[in-house]
C-alpha cells in the first residue's frame, strides 16, 4: 500500500462527503430554523436528479445551467410543499408525529409522481466533455468531475456560513431559530422566511441530486439511500447544527472510504458503528454543546 493510494482514497471519501453534506446541510437547516424534521429531504435530491435529466438530456440545455435550473426547481417544489402542507401543522399539539407522517408520505408521493412522469428505466446524463476524464498529479489519479463536486461543496459550505452570519436574512434566521414569537413581534416576516429557508434547503438537496445524476443511478427510490446517509450524518454531527452536518459528512465519507480500503467485507458496518458510538457517548451529536440536551 503506498501513499498515492491513501490520497486517492482520501479524495474519494471527500467526494462522497460533499454529496452527503449538500443534502444533510439542508436537512439540518430546516430543522434548526423551521423546527421540522423533513424525512422527504432525499426526495428533493431525487427531483434534482430528474430535473437535471429533463433539462440537460431531453431539452439540451448547457450542463451547468441545467444543474442550476434543477436546484431551483427542487427549491420551488420544496416551497410548495411547505406552503400548502407543512404550514398547516406548525405548532399543533403532537406536531412531531404529524411531521413524520406528512414528510414520510411525501417520500412515497414524490417517488410515484417521478415514476408516472419519467417511468422506471434508468436515466443518464453526460458530464461536460472536459470533465469526463481523469485528473492526475504525481501517482494519484481521480475523476476530474469529483474535484469539481468537492469545490462546489466547499463553496456552498462557505457561502451558507457567510449568509447566516453576515446578511440580514441570516440574522432573521438566527432570530427565528432562537425565538419565533419574539422575532415575529420585532417585525420579521416569519412565514415568508420559513418558506424561503425551506426553498433554500430543498434547493441544496436538488443541487446534490443534479450533480450526482451523471455518476449515479437516476431511478425512482434513489432518494431513500441518500436520506438514510444524511440521517446518519446529522445524528453524528448534531441535529440543527450547520457545521455538524459538514463534520458528520466528512466523518462518514472518510470512515467509509478507509474502511473499504482495509476491511472491504465489513465496509457497510462502519458508518452505523460510528453512529451507534455517537448515540451512546454523545447523544446530542459531536458539535452540540453538552447540556443543550434536555
Amino acid at each position: 500500500m503506498d501513499g498515492s493510494l491513501l490520497v486517492a482514497q482520501l479524495i474519494s471519501g471527500l467526494t462522497s462527503a460533499m454529496t452527503l453534506f449538500l443534502v444533510a446541510s439542508g436537512l439540518t437547516l430546516i430543522f434548526g430554523v423551521v423546527n421540522v424534521f423533513n424525512f422527504a429531504h432525499g426526495s428533493f435530491y431525487l427531483l434534482g436528479a430528474y430535473f437535471a435529466y429533463q433539462v440537460v438530456a431531453v431539452s439540451g440545455v448547457n450542463f451547468w445551467a441545467g444543474v442550476l435550473l434543477a436546484a431551483l426547481g427542487a427549491g420551488a417544489a420544496g416551497m410548495l410543499m411547505e406552503y400548502f402542507f407543512l404550514r398547516r401543522i406548525y405548532g399543533r399539539a403532537g406536531e412531531a408525529g404529524f411531521q413524520i407522517l406528512l414528510t414520510y408520505s411525501f417520500i412515497l408521493i414524490i417517488d410515484d409522481v417521478v415514476k408516472m412522469i419519467w417511468g422506471t428505466d434508468y436515466k443518464s446524463i453526460s458530464k461536460p466533455e472536459i470533465l469526463s476524464g481523469p485528473f492526475s498529479f504525481g501517482e494519484v489519479t481521480m475523476p476530474r468531475y469529483d474535484l469539481v463536486v468537492i469545490v462546489i461543496g466547499l463553496a456552498v459550505a462557505f457561502g451558507m456560513w457567510a449568509a447566516i452570519k453576515k446578511t440580514r436574512f441570516g440574522r432573521n434566521l438566527r432570530a427565528i431559530s432562537s425565538n419565533r414569537e419574539m422575532a415575529s413581534s420585532l417585525g420579521v416576516n416569519v412565514p415568508l422566511t420559513l418558506s424561503l429557508v425551506f426553498g433554500l434547503a430543498t434547493a441544496l438537496g436538488g443541487l446534490s441530486g443534479a450533480l450526482s445524476a451523471p455518476v449515479r443511478t437516476v431511478t425512482p427510490g434513489a432518494g431513500i439511500e441518500v436520506i438514510i446517509g444524511s440521517l446518519i450524518v446529522v445524528v453524528i454531527g448534531g441535529l440543527g447544527n450547520f457545521w455538524g452536518a459538514l463534520v458528520g459528512a466528512l466523518v462518514i465519507g472518510e470512515v467509509t472510504a478507509f474502511g473499504i480500503l482495509f476491511l472491504p467485507q465489513w465496509a457497510i458496518l462502519f458508518s452505523y458503528a460510528v453512529m451507534a458510538l455517537v448515540l451512546i457517548f454523545r447523544p446530542e451529536g459531536l458539535l452540540m454543546k453538552r447540556g443543550a440536551v434536555g
Binding site: 430543522f31 434548526g32 430554523v33 423546527n35 424534521f37 424525512f39 412531531a96 413524520i100 414520510y104 417520500i107 412515497l108 438566527r174 431559530s177 432562537s178 427510490g221 431513500i224 439511500e225 436520506i227 438514510i228 440521517l231 446518519i232 446529522v234 445524528v235 441535529l239 440543527g240 447544527n241 450547520f242 448515540l279 447523544p283 446530542e284 451529536g285 452540540m288 454543546k289 443543550a292 440536551v293 434536555g294
Partner: peptide
C-alpha cells in the same frame, strides 16, 4: 441555531428505521 433534546434524536432514529423499511 435552536437547541433541541434527546426526544428529537429518538424520533430521528425511529424515522430512520421507518425509512429503511422502504428500501427493501
Amino acid at each position: 441555531m435552536r437547541k433541541q433534546g434527546r426526544k428529537w434524536q429518538a424520533i430521528l432514529v425511529i424515522g430512520l428505521v421507518l425509512v429503511m423499511g422502504l428500501a427493501e
